[in-house]
Write a protein that binds this DNA or RNA. Structure first.
Lengths: 387, 387
DNA sequence: TACTTCACTGCAAACCTTTGCAGGATCACT
DNA sequence: AGTGATCCTGCAAAGGTTTGCAGTGAAGTA
């Protein structure tokens, strides 16, 4: 049946030519059967498809890429795969890409801008585009690289480039308002990496929300966006005398809670803590973490879509016969902002200025494991909102 | 300097021909400069390299793949990227591959055997080999697929195929012995997916260890290898009356602890829990999890090495002019077993039969957050031990 | 019938690189 | 000077596919 001798270790490569021979047509007809089915007679088509199936033919993507200029691969550059924020994004992007018949190269930069740049270069020629997730490079470098290969940037705003953003500003505002509503007036913001767009955005929004709510916001940072980074500032948080903290991300928040716990500071009784990301972990720690849920899966899907859409417009390299440049709209520079949602769990509680409106607020016994917090988890929506 | 007009959005593809023209040599010389530098005059070489650098030339891997038959890509098929067990493996594999000038396609199967098979098929022609991590397919299917594309299997034993295994048997034994040493005589084993090699291996080793230690082992399962799966059996665990549990993995262990906590059962005072994997998370929960550390990073690296080594032997498809089959040793079928280590943290404590040798064992106050457990984390070794 | 249209298929060039072979130059040695 | 070896380079075929163009036959129109 197949061309391979049954017990041979290595499969014999079956090409378009074998299929053509088997089905008695020219190779170009076979080619069209796959890449332009409407151009071939239905009868012929089924015959060719049958032969192809029979022989186990699969188009050689390298050969196809060579002539079409499209590899059907996309690159996904991630700051740190081990950071639980990213796997859902990777998973969603991979799945979305696969449905569009694309494959995803995943590469990890270890949070290093230089590695990041090298990776884009290395990937440039063998992918149709690259997704840059939480890049640490400078804006100008990103722009420069975007001339080498189509880019979509996630978690960062680069003018002139398609970006997928999560509205952490809104999330930070909601978090601060939530804390103020609980009676906190002195709040700290644990900053993340300096070069992070998210970081700036949070600072801006949290600052505004605090001002308009009559609370004081203390900035602590920058810090490493990890559990260790969070634990390291616990002492500083205690000294600062704040009653609530908004952390750059969940890992830091969890680290901070650990650190505070080691110092004998109870969460949320003495200090409330809010994280960002809603990683799986945040549901598993004790107390369960109040956090700003970011739609990472939606971000991955959206980014893939934007990349592919942009690719479709410029079918090949610059080999248009006429003026190479005048191809009309070359890049869609749309920026998509995804909604975030505050998920209230157990790491936030009443602050010093809480109005004892209702006599509820059970004084929270010595066991912090079963706090009677409000705990109304808002649904996480990941709908894209084009801006 | 470069051939691209500066403000053009799309980079002009610069080929080997451009470099040849610029440096005044034939394209074959340029080719050799990159793929066989020792065959070209040093002077010529530097000139060519300079021109290439100048023009920003990068070899077209599709064209190269077309003629050499090697794509310099490898596929990495993962049961569930979101499972924190995998990211360190992915990270290590990607890094190792990159150092060998390979790129890694990552694909997620959602624990579905059918998707798994499809992915291998889809990847077969565009990679030089595939890493199968914790596959859920049948052995026979895996063997069959291995005829289509070189395979390395991780976390599973398939005769005739190169495998990277982690010695969970030894880990399970150590865990059971640890528990018996603490005075537990009635222990439950929370099983994972039925088709999992790890699962069978653990059952075998744990059973043997329990027998020889005079303890009774209750099997509970199979269960989903997730936090939810663990939480779901909490009630069952309580009813079974065991004083200690060894879970299939950390996620299940953590879920179980949560579930027990919800039932008012304290860990480790009433029930000790041991996990497997030592995911980052296990250090962050309270109580911190005692677990069998598996060298996932080493597994990723080793798997890549084994795949590449195997690839090197059979340089192309079966197109040797003579007898296609008699190519000598075709596949190395080495199986590598990596060591595991028991990391003792806070989720295990004295059992009903504990000998109060020393009066230590501080009666563990109402606050389970600061248990004075033994907590001597063994170093995680990831040395490969060929079998 | 003659002509046009249409649907389908074949032909051959092109994509970019690698590589076996052969030619040319240089050099050492006899 | 002749011989052979060595080193470097050029030539050209090959790899699997796509695609513009041309050709075929049949159907439709005048």
């Amino acid at each position: 049946m197949t061309a391979a001798t049954p017990d041979e270790g290595v499969a014999v490569p079956v090409t378009i030519r074998d299929v053509a021979r088997a089905s008695g047509v020219h190779i170009s007809t076979v080619s069209r059967t796959f890449s332009a089915p409407h151009l071939v007679n239905p009868e012929t088509r089924v015959r060719v498809l049958a032969c192809a199936e029979d022989l186990g033919y699969r188009p050689n993507r390298a050969a196809r890429a060579l002539i079409t200029g499209r590899t059907h691969n996309i690159g996904l550059i991630i700051a740190d795969i081990a950071n639980p924020f990213f796997p859902p994004l990777i998973k969603a992007a991979e799945s979305q890409a696969r449905h569009r018949d694309y494959h995803v190269f995943v590469a990890d930069t270890n949070e290093d801008p230089t590695t990041e740049e090298e990776l884009v270069h290395a990937l440039a020629k063998q992918v149709d585009g690259v997704l840059l997730c939480s890049p640490r490079m400078s804006n100008s470098l990103i722009e420069q690289l975007s001339r080498e290969v189509p880019l979509v940037v996630v978690n960062r705003q680069v003018t002139g480039l398609p970006c997928v953003l999560m509205d952490v500003g809104q999330g930070a505002r909601a978090a601060i308002e939530h804390l103020i509503g609980l009676g906190h007036r002195s709040i700290a913001l644990l900053g993340g990496p300096r070069s992070s767009w998210t970081n700036r955005e949070m600072r801006r929004a949290a600052g505004a929300a605090a001002r308009s709510g009559g609370a004081e916001l203390t900035l602590l940072g920058p810090n490493a966006p990890t559990e260790t980074g969070g634990a390291a500032v616990a002492e500083q948080v205690r000294r600062s005398g704040v009653s609530a903290v908004l952390a750059y991300n969940d890992l830091m928040a969890i680290g901070l809670i650990e650190g505070l716990h080691a110092l004998g500071v109870r969460v949320p009784q003495e200090v409330s803590v809010v994280g960002v990301d809603d990683i799986t972990l945040s549901r598993l720690t004790r107390p369960k973490l109040t956090t700003v849920a970011t739609p990472t899966g939606a971000a991955g899907r959206t980014a893939v879509d934007m990349l592919l859409q942009q690719d479709i417009e410029s079918p090949r390299g610059a080999r248009a016969p006429g003026a190479g440049t005048a191809l009309g709209v070359r890049r869609t520079t749309a920026q998509v902002m995804l909604q975030t949602d505050l998920v209230i769990r157990d790491s936030t509680g009443p602050g010093p200025h809480a109005r004892p409106v209702r006599p509820l607020a059970a004084p929270l016994g010595p066991d912090p494991h079963c706090p009677a917090g409000p705990g109304i988890p808002t649904a996480v929506t990941g709908d894209a909102v084009a801006s």
